[in-house]
């Protein structure tokens, strides 16, 4: 259902401190910086992660915006485009009660439709984590993954295949095509495809008719002689 995972580098949660950084002080707030290494900006389709005792989550996105008119914006100017920070999510509650275990280590999935602004042309992401409860020693997010929107890549691939213009560097594919052209023994494509379709239909019906009901047997080949339990 989702697109392919996006390559990105994710920094460890950095706790926000006040004054001397060595002094022990818990502000209940931390940030995670995510950067996408490619020079091109990316579109985000979905974010998934496993919560680890974070109560509230905000997401800030650094996006490249097309400049329509020349404006004196405080953001870094880059010729025709401007880099601005926009808010994707603001204080979304991950734990219903920050003092209690409920959903403290659950998995979450945030889709692009749930974000306040469409996450397109994103250069980097900053996740702001908050945990107001003093009950917990530490908090963060684990297993953070970004995915691209679903349709884009598959459509691109399809159009490429239809038009027949494969990427030039794809030598292996060209090689195969050459061989196919040379080899006259291979039957016409239509024939193969009809027979394949039949086979596919057959296997499909077989798969559908298979029940998952178990027969309730617990022995193996009629034997259930056991001496000791195994620890693994």
């Amino acid at each position: 259902m989702t697109g392919k995972p996006l390559v990105c580098s994710i920094r460890n949660p950095h706790p926000i401190t006040i004054g001397d950084p060595r002094a022990e002080f818990s502000s209940g707030c931390a940030v995670v910086d995510v950067t996408f290494p490619s020079t091109k900006s990316v579109d985000i389709g979905e974010i998934t992660f496993k919560n680890n005792y974070t109560a509230l989550l905000s997401i800030k996105l650094k996006v490249r915006e097309e400049n329509e008119k020349e404006e004196e914006e405080p953001a870094e100017s880059d010729g025709e485009t401007t880099l601005t920070w926009v808010t994707g999510l603001k204080n979304v509650q991950l734990m219903p009660d920050p003092h209690c275990e409920d959903r403290a280590q659950s998995y979450y999935r945030i889709k692009r439709e749930q974000l306040l602004t469409p996450p397109d042309n994103v250069l980097s992401v900053r996740l702001v984590l908050q945990q107001p409860s003093p009950v917990w020693l530490s908090f963060g997010l684990d297993d953070i993954k970004f995915y691209s929107p679903k349709d884009e890549t598959s459509e691109l691939m399809l159009s490429e295949l239809v038009n027949g213009d494969m990427p030039a560097d794809d030598e292996a594919m060209n090689d195969i095509r050459k061989r196919v052209k040379e080899n006259k023994d291979i039957p016409p494509v239509e024939e193969i495809s009809t027979s394949l379709q039949q086979m596919w239909a057959l296997s499909e019906t077989a798969r559908i008719n298979q029940t998952e009901a178990s027969l309730g047997r617990f022995d193996v080949d009629g034997s259930y002689d056991i001496n000791l339990l195994s620890y693994t």
């Binding site: 022995d219 193996v220 034997s223 056991i226 001496n227 195994s230």
Partner: peptide
Amino acid sequence: TSVLKCFAHTSATPAKSYIRGKLGMEEFQV
């Protein structure tokens, strides 16, 4: 064995063992 289904929803896992003389062989695990 239909009781085993409810282990899918909780932290518990049923105890495992091997048929005598077939220790460590996956298909003889019960």
